[in-house]
Design a protein around this nucleic acid. Structure first.
Length: 724
DNA sequence: CCGAGGGTCCTTTTT
DNA sequence: GGACCCTCGG
């Protein structure tokens, strides 16, 4: 088998495992996608199973596409019968095929999280629920979390009135969705799971079909997903799970790393294969990653190694301010680019999105092209959702969400009062808003006529032409074309996006056998699309550490390594939160192939206020010998004081903008050895940073933010503070 | 029906 | 600082 050549012994062992369940612990950069695809190719080409007998599951559409692409490059035979997709995509497929058994209309629509929230708000209004006491977002979370645990409203344990009320809303919400023929993301999974649980013949059909089930990123599965897999695997099928517990960074959205241990128990996994050889990074980078992640106690255990050389040390930069840090990154990226590294081969990673602003500003100033990942996706844009709502209403008149979105957009003089009356009428007769609208006259009736005309006119049209028709006759195009003044630019962009929607539909029709409207709407919901075009342009990548998972770059800038930001303050509360933050840092480090910059700032603008922080504890966990400090290294790291540091490396004192007290403070700062942002040590409280200073020479008091002991005011006369 | 203005919140995200 | 949401006034 020529595709087996080039695999290392562990990869090969994983690929040619006999037909049994297995857990492959695949470290970062160890070639896990290759192992997965080669395994499938090997199973098929050795005749052990036909493509028909394989189910391959991923989390993202991107991963599914990539696997399919690689697989078709390896195999010459037709792999049509093979099911490959995301959990949601696969569940959708089963539900459509068995919609009657699943008690859904064939053309059921999928609610994205925004639609779901709108749906919940509408319901709560109808039920007269106080949205101060029950914030809709929280209710949404409550519903999704429970569904992801496999629980229906009546199965949720509610011991307090607060939870009981939320359970009631949960139940009413599910009823509303059922009535309207819509399904939210977690419902796709839960409904499919229930379908297979209740329907023995269907379950047995799929069980006997999918002899091999392969799962990517297994550490990210939630409870329901694991149960779904277990159900499909039954007693006899082989569940081949690939994952990395050290890269589990999605506990906050329900991922359960424990599924890995559970898998080995439930499926009597004989041997766990570890892929530890890394094909991505130089040695120093891996050594740093290994040293860091060792501090997590509950691990399955793994140590990355490479046959490559050590490479260069990690470069550490301490900046006085976030703006300075950004300026450094921009400058360095520009320099590297001049030396021949493509901008697209570099990435700036950060813990939270708010950090991108300063960096973008610096990049603009330095004239460095960049691209920010994340943010609004194509199908989530307001104008696209409006256009799709027309299509949804045409498709399924029971879709109240869709009707409400467009009944007065573009404005056609139907006000809030009219809409309320419509909702009351619908509720009273237990009918859809559409049906209620049909009973009225006047402006609402005109709207009904408009939709009916559209329905008739588009029935026989190919999808792109149908969309074109709707854009024109709904008045959407005219609405944006008529925008003037400050909004004109924005409207122009929206018009371009609407045009792009027609292109997307054209492409969709070309690429899919099933080019029905339902299919397109499903596509829009399940694949919200790229956030920005121009993927080919050579631009520096900006993204959160989370979204960098799975990617790699020649050079990585990891910014904002400050205690409280990374690890994030809020993670201290969460169960094993700091461990998850550490895994996140591990992900960040292992993105770099050749060069890794680690930087932090003494002060940072956060929530509109200047914030002073200590260096991240994660940076301290990295072995000194792997690091090269670009700025003078911090004194504590040497165990001797470094006078050079404070004088040479605080070019300008951080701004203090309290007009009245400002002058006094500045004097104090200049005359005393203490200044804001200075790192200090206290005999009892440990290490901290000065964040405020008050009083004169003799009765001077400083406010210190300690690493562990919180923030305290200390009188310098009494407190034993030593500069670090 | 719109837009200005005020209050509130602020970690991470895919489907 | 700024995104978002709601309210109130024209």
């Amino acid at each position: 088998m020529d595709f087996l050549s080039g695999l290392n012994p562990e990869q090969r062992a994983a690929v040619i495992l006999p037909e049994q369940s297995a857990l492959i612990l695949a470290g970062a950069g160890s070639g896990k996608t290759r192992v997965l695809t080669t395994r499938i190719a090997w199973l098929i080409s050795t005749g052990q199973v036909s493509p028909h007998g394989i189910l391959a599951v991923t989390f993202t559409n991107k991963a599914a596409r990539e696997m399919l692409l690689r697989l078709s490059a390896m195999l010459s035979i037709n792999i049509r019968g093979l099911w490959m997709g995301t959990f949601h995509g696969l569940c959708n497929r089963m539900l459509r095929a068995h919609h009657l058994e699943a008690m859904l209309p064939q053309t059921f629509q999928i609610l994205d999280s925004g639609d779901q929230l709108a749906s919940i708000k509408r319901l709560m209004k109808a039920l007269n629920v106080d949205d101060e006491k029950y914030p809709p977002r929280e209710v949404q979370n409550f519903i999704s979390k429970n569904k992801e645990q496999g629980l229906r409203a009546h199965e949720v344990e509610a011991f307090d009135p607060y939870t009981r009320r939320r359970v009631e809303i949960f139940a009413a919400y599910d009823e509303q969705c059922q009535r309207e023929g819509v399904v939210d993301f977690s419902e796709l999974l839960l409904r499919c799971y229930e379908l297979l649980t209740r329907n023995q013949s269907l379950r047995e059909h799929y069980q006997s079909r999918f002899r091999h089930i392969l799962v990517d990123e297994f550490q990210d599965t939630n409870r329901l997903q694991y149960q779904w897999l277990k159900l499909l695997a039954g007693q006899h099928n082989a569940l081949f799970a690939v994952g990395d517990d050290d890269q589990s960074i999605y506990a906050f959205r329900g991922a359960n790393v424990g599924n890995m241990q559970e898998l080995t128990r439930d499926f009597h996994v004989q041997n766990v294969i570890k892929l530890e050889q890394n094909y991505r990074s130089h040695g120093n980078i891996l050594d740093a990653a290994n040293a860091l992640i060792k501090n997590n106690l509950s691990r399955l255990g793994k140590n990355l190694w490479t046959s490559e050389n050590k490479g260069e040390p990690l470069r550490v930069y301490e900046a006085p301010t976030d703006a300075e840090e950004a300026r450094f990154i921009a400058e360095e990226a520009r320099q590297l680019n001049r030396e021949g590294i493509h901008l697209a081969e570099m990435a700036v990673l950060y813990r939270s999105n708010a950090q991108s602003r300063v960096i973008e500003h610096a990049l603009v100033s330095a004239g460095v092209a960049y691209r920010v990942y994340g943010g609004l996706r194509f199908f989530e844009r307001q104008e696209i959702k409006h256009a799709l709502a027309y299509l949804r209403l045409i498709q399924n008149s029971g879709d109240d969400n869709a009707l409400l979105r467009i009944i007065n957009f573009p404005t056609r003089g139907i006000g809030a009062r009219t809409i309320e009356q419509l909702q009351e009428a619908a509720r009273a007769q237990n009918i859809s808003l559409w049906q209620a609208a049909k009973q009225t006259s006047g402006k609402v009736a005109a709207f009904v006529t408009l939709i009916e005309m559209m329905t008739g006119a588009t029935r026989e049209l190919p999808l792109p032409e149908a969309i074109d028709h709707i854009l024109l006759h709904s008045g959407l195009l005219a609405h944006y074309q008529n925008e003037t003044g400050v909004k004109q630019r924005e409207a122009q962009e929206r018009l371009e996006n609407l045009n792009e929607l027609i292109n997307a539909a054209t492409l969709f029709v070309h690429e899919n056998e099933d080019d029905s409207l339902t299919s397109f709407l499903t596509h829009a919901a399940l694949e919200s699309g790229e956030s920005q075009a121009e993927a080919n342009a050579d631009a520096l990548h900006l993204m959160t550490v989370h979204s960098s998972k799975g990617l790699e770059f020649h050079t990585v800038f990891m910014g904002g390594l400050e205690e409280g930001l990374f690890p994030h303050q809020n993670s201290r509360m969460a169960d094993a939160g700091v461990d998850e933050e550490r895994r996140l840092m591990y992900v960040a480090i292992t993105r770099a192939r050749r060069r890794l910059y680690l930087s932090f700032a003494q002060s940072r603008m956060l929530h509109g206020q200047v914030n002073y922080s200590l260096m991240s504890s994660f940076l301290r966990e990295l072995p000194e010998k792997l690091l090269h400090w670009i700025t003078p290294r911090i004194a504590t790291r040497n165990n001797f004081s470094s006078p050079a540091y404070s004088t040479a490396f605080v070019p300008k004192p951080p701004p203090i903008n309290m007009s009245g007290l400002g002058a006094k403070k500045c004097v104090s700062v200049q005359n005393s050895p203490w200044h804001i942002s200075q790192e200090v040590h206290h005999a009892k409280f440990g290490e901290g940073v000065i964040i405020d200073i008050e009083g004169g020479d003799s009765d001077m008091r400083v406010q210190v933010k300690f690493r562990t002991a919180g923030t305290k005011w200390l009188a310098l006369e009494y407190a034993k503070l030593t500069p670090l």
